[in-house]
Write a protein that binds this DNA or RNA. Structure first.
Lengths: 252, 252
DNA sequence: ACCTGAACACCGTTCAAGT
DNA sequence: ACCTGAACACCGTTCAAGT
């Protein structure tokens, strides 16, 4: 099947089989190979650039072939997210510093999403049912429990925390995509450009209609993604402590 | 230009000009008319069903025509979101109950998103620059200030709060869309079906690998969207109070 | 300046046909 | 059972041509 040809490349003699040619080696397809390619493409080019077609092409076939191994794009996304969730490593709960550990887990999740830009889009609305996402949820719950958080609050908090991390990752990706589009169109679009433009816009607002925004342009545009993310997870974790303590006080 | 024809419909004589025919009356296009249609379609059929083509069709023209009034889909989305943001009515700050007012503002925003299912997708990554979104941001900031929150925290909190509301709305829409797809395929997909399935799945998990999730299946699946949303905004608002108080204590 | 039709370069998914 | 090519019903956007 694999027709072989021999080329003379400078001083080298190179033997090439048709299977080695451009599209891909012709191995058997499998769920895992499909997910491997999807994950690799997402890592390299972001969620937007990955499609049933782009995956199929890299596997040397057409998009229809994938449907023998994967129900649809939605299921494929779940499988990819599952792999990504496994990357956030999770600490053994220590009641002394459960809150810091919780935050570390969330940072790890954000880092895993960031490694595959845009992937977090697929987690919005996803109910954790696969291995990796379950492990993450279990770990978040374990940390909450180590902190003495009531079960019901821990369960809801695990959801809210994961949702917040995902939405931050999605927002970041929107900016990245906009940057790409701007770059392709030859427009300047560094982070500083955008921040400067927003700052100027806020300052230019009518002071009678927007007294706060116009006077606080500085504060509104202060802080990079990291600082804002830290603020967000701190709000949530401190809020969780407060709500939990309030409930405990009510019961006593 | 409008060629007229006269038809006999039963006992009635009907005069129809070409402009009145099926697609739409041929008024001049405008930004506002385009946004009107986009908003109406989103309200009726959700974000997924709205496209440059569907809007153009309702206006009796082709998609290319829209580009004379709107730069691209992104800009159109901004205009739509701006209109939606105006719907959340905002209270005059009362220092006695700023926190409740803040939550009410967030509930109003969620309600506005829900009236246009999926619209919240478009807000992820959007920087508020138009009227409606600015008014909302200004109001959120005013309430935080009434609560004695430091400017920097207020600014960051306004972002986090809006992001949380949007991400809840997006998640809900994912479920709605999945429900539609399931209904179209003839599968059952009520909320109870899904909750029951998830509950069963958690219960079935290996107790040694997932001791918490498997034993807390009840608690994990308790609470509807409303209850979970309330929990989320409470975490954020209580967290904001806590962080603000901590900073004040540090400075003293 | 505004509008248009046709085309470009994409999507996810289905389906009949092949092995 | 697995794979395939071709087609279906969509996208957003561009562009030359019309008024």
């Amino acid at each position: 099947m694999a027709t072989e040809k021999t080329f003379q490349v400078g001083p080298l003699r190179v033997r090439v089989s048709a299977a080695d040619a451009q599209p891909a080696p012709k191995e058997r397809l499998s769920r895992d190979r499909i997910v491997d390619v999807a994950l690799a493409q997402m890592k390299e080019r972001g969620y937007e650039a990955v499609s049933m077609r782009s995956i199929a092409k890299e596997l040397g076939t057409g998009p229809a072939s994938l449907y023998a191994h994967v129900a649809n794009r939605d299921e494929l996304d779940s499988l990819v997210i599952d792999r990504i969730a496994r990357q956030a490593d999770l600490p053994a709960p220590d009641p002394e510093r459960w809150d810091e550990q919780l935050k570390a887990g969330l940072r790890g999740l954000l880092a895993a999403f960031r490694e595959h830009p845009g992937s977090a889009r697929a987690t919005l609305g996803m109910i954790p049912t696969l291995e990796g996402t379950l492990v993450h949820a279990e770990a978040m719950m374990a940390l909450c429990r180590a902190g003495g958080i009531q079960d019901q609050y821990a369960a809801w908090a695990a959801d809210v925390l994961a949702l917040y991390v995902a939405s931050v990752a999605v927002e970041e990706d929107v900016w990245v995509e906009r940057g790409k589009a701007a770059a392709a169109a030859g427009r300047p679009y560094t982070e500083e450009d955008v921040v400067a433009a927003v700052h100027a816009h806020f300052r230019s607002l009518a002071a009678d209609r927007f007294p706060i925004l116009s006077s606080l342009a500085d504060v509104m545009t202060t802080g990079d993604g990291e600082e804002r993310f830290e603020f967000g997870i701190t709000l949530l974790v401190e809020g969780l402590k407060a709500v939990s303590a309030q409930a405990r006080a009510r019961e006593a």
